[in-house]
Design a protein around this nucleic acid. Sequence first.
DNA 1: CGACTATACTCAGTCTGGAGGTC
DNA 2: CGACCTCCAGACTGAGTATAGTC
Length: 914
Amino acid sequence: MSSSDDDMPIRKGRMNGVKSQDHIPKNVDRALDKEMPSNGDINPGVSVRMGPVEEEMDVDEPHSGAQTNGKRKARASVSNGKSYKEASASDGEDDVPLSKRRKTSKSKLASDSELSDDEPIARKTHAKKPPKVTAAQIGESSDSDTPLTAKLAKEKKQIEKAAEKTAKAIRAEEEKSAATKRKPKKEDTDSDDDVPLVNKKKPAPSARKASNGVKDESDDDVPLSRKAPPAKKAKGKAEPSAPAKKGKGKNVKAETEQDEDAEAEEEEYRWWEDPTKGDGTKKWTTLQHNGVVFPPPYEPLPKHVKMRYNGVLVSLHPDAEEVAGFYGSMLNSTHNVENPTFNKNFFADFKEILDKTGHAKDKDGKTVKITAFEKCDFKPIFEYYDAQREAKKALPAAEKKAIKAAKDEAEAPYMYCMWDGRKQKVGNFRVEPPGLFRGRGEHPKTGKVKKRVEPEQITINIGKEATVPPPPEGHRWKEVKHDQEGTWLAMWQENINGAYKYVMLAANSDIKGQSDYKKFEKARELKKHIDKIRRDYNKDLKSEVMADRQRATAVYLIDQFALRAGNEKGEDEADTVGCCSLKFEHVTLKPPNTVIFDFLGKDSIRFYNEFEVDPQVFKNLKIFKKAPKKDGDEIFDRLTTATLNKHLSSYMPGLTAKVFRTYNASYTMSQLLQEMHSKGTIPEKVKDYNDANRKVAILCNHKRTVAPGHAGQIEKMQEKINGIRYQQWRLRQMMIDLDPKIKKKKGAEFFERPEDLDDEWVKQHQESLVTQEREKIRKKFEKENEKRVADGEKEMKPKELEERMEAADELEKKFKKENKTGKVEAEGKGITIDKLEANIEKLTERIEAQKLQLEDKDNNKEVALGTSKINYIDPRLTVVFSKKFNVPIERFFSKTLREKFDWAIKSVDEDWEF
DNA sequence: CGACTATACTCAGTCTGGAGGTC
DNA sequence: CGACCTCCAGACTGAGTATAGTC
């Protein structure tokens, strides 16, 4: 992987980060490096301790066995009888083989490998008990967590806004004062960090109650708008009402006014400074919206457009025809249409609908039963749809615009909702249209028909007070709910995987912003625990308890290499893995301590990396892979994501595997930005930022498919560079022409043609230069003629063109002569050695610039920066960079991102630290 | 099991660079 | 001759979408 080079530095640095004092990355790295080499001693200790453990294990087995077994059984069935347990010929108690072996090896325990395999499963449960660890951990986390509360730096911000006029406003006032009172009481004076919202969860309610008598519930109930802290309040004047409100009942109108208020105060309301936000599970008090937009109904094909079966044109029931159309319209997508699974699944579903609607009919109305996929010819359908597509594309711009405007207007009512009286953008209000399911990677269900979603399948979530959006004529909703703990407005279940689809608010909404904020605060909170976590897992890498050792190893991988948790997956899903679900064949061990990961991760994106790991990790993986495990068996057979996360949450409430990704991404970014002394022009600074962004993206393995024209583009750039280099060489030869002695002065080497620009290349290059010249002349000639015609003058004669072409002929001759004599005549009037030198220097600069661009482009070809920017890098880091180096934030965040990260843009100054 | 985040891809619209022209 | 303008194909961006994860 080309990308691995780039990221290695980071990852290496982070490797073995046990000791890190996280704020000082360099120290961390150094400490780590020092540590790495040692460690030869680990084995003995481990093995020795194994003995006792085993005995315990057997005893415990029953308990833990239940859990473990369940999980493993599930796996076994999935993997088709190839599971580890079966391989080891056990009776289904997969533990048995392990413990047996354990027993045998008990006494000797000479080697790690012996120890390992036999770990008592039961140990898992047992081991958890050790009060020291757990207690210590819990104690620690709770200690540090409790206080924090409203510590946000923004506290300082002033509160000066006038009160709202509505009754709600009054309540808001109450809230405000409550909030203000609350603030002072926090006791966490020890930390400078912003308080993660998460932590407030527990402490908050009781604390509040005690201090100000506000009941929890009411806290939660307060709509956002009313909760706004005393800070700048809106003056709440009326504004033109948004389209979304049209056609609503009176309560809607009432809300509309509120809406207006909300809008007026929109920029002013800073929920992230509002200590009452973010706790509790009740997400809203009042909620109204207009439901969802359905895709347009199916439009049957014109009568003359039919598929062929066995060479005969046949007509279908509209329902079947629609499905045929799904397939027909994508004949140009060879990627799908040539995939046997895709075709098989499609045809199965197609036949099903045919059976239901009656099969095809020929022109005489006779039934033609469709039974063989090969005999289906969808080309006529394809051509029809393709023509439609073309026609649409060819539409004049004005018309396209008009169509779009009409669509926008029709959808306007659905774009926004009123959430606790504040107007909020809805994310995906369009119901997903029917089609053929693609799936990513080798998805077993690819090609299946994704059915049209009927209103009867859709559940609406809305405030009790709100008008329920009417279902389409003649239909009804599946259900109307008032679930205030949910953030979704509508929901349905999709037919392919039975997955739930939700309509939720857009990324720039308060609620999404809040959870985004919480996510990053949680990651920052992890900073406080990471040292202990790393210490612990490094210790547990040698644990005698298999489950613990596996867990420690997994956490190591997640922490160091940003692996995902890796939940179990079903048989009918693409075969992808994450940390906990890594299989035997995904990990290759290369002594002394290099591990090669090669597997398909989320979205079937390949994860390939060779990492040097802690020797103990290397040993552990070896153990976890020990026979009889083989391809298809899980490496972490004693570990599930649930156990892992449970363990993690003992360090810090809400800590799960995915937090490490956020933490490490943001932390890495913050380190990179901190080390940066970005100087120069804005584009240069932007590039510096992007370079850091790229490192994070590589860390997270965020990839994109290489653009189809990429290779060509690179080649083009390379040719361009070569052209410059050639020109440079010619200039040097001209120097000789001017002053033959200069060859000695400068050394012959200076004048040699670069090796890769061999005779063959030169010939071709010259030819292309000459043809280019000819083209240029011809085009100019034609253009001039056109102009003449337009002006009513007469055209120039072909003779003129011939004459002009002589310039190109000259060039050709000149090259020929140069090739023959090996000399280049100095050209240009008044040319001097000095001028040539200057020109050469200029070209050198151009070459360098081009090379840089090329490298950049190539390095970037399969790295996607967006995902990490949107989901992993704390936006406040970007804001800090922007302020510190005086680069407009627009250079980093698009309009939508600026809206999404509004809270970050407004809440930090350049001193803020992750 | 349900709900929420995270991902890559698509497509349309925007931007860019550089050829050619003008002043 | 260079500073500046115009035009256009092709590269790049961004919003939107649909799928795949996590917990």
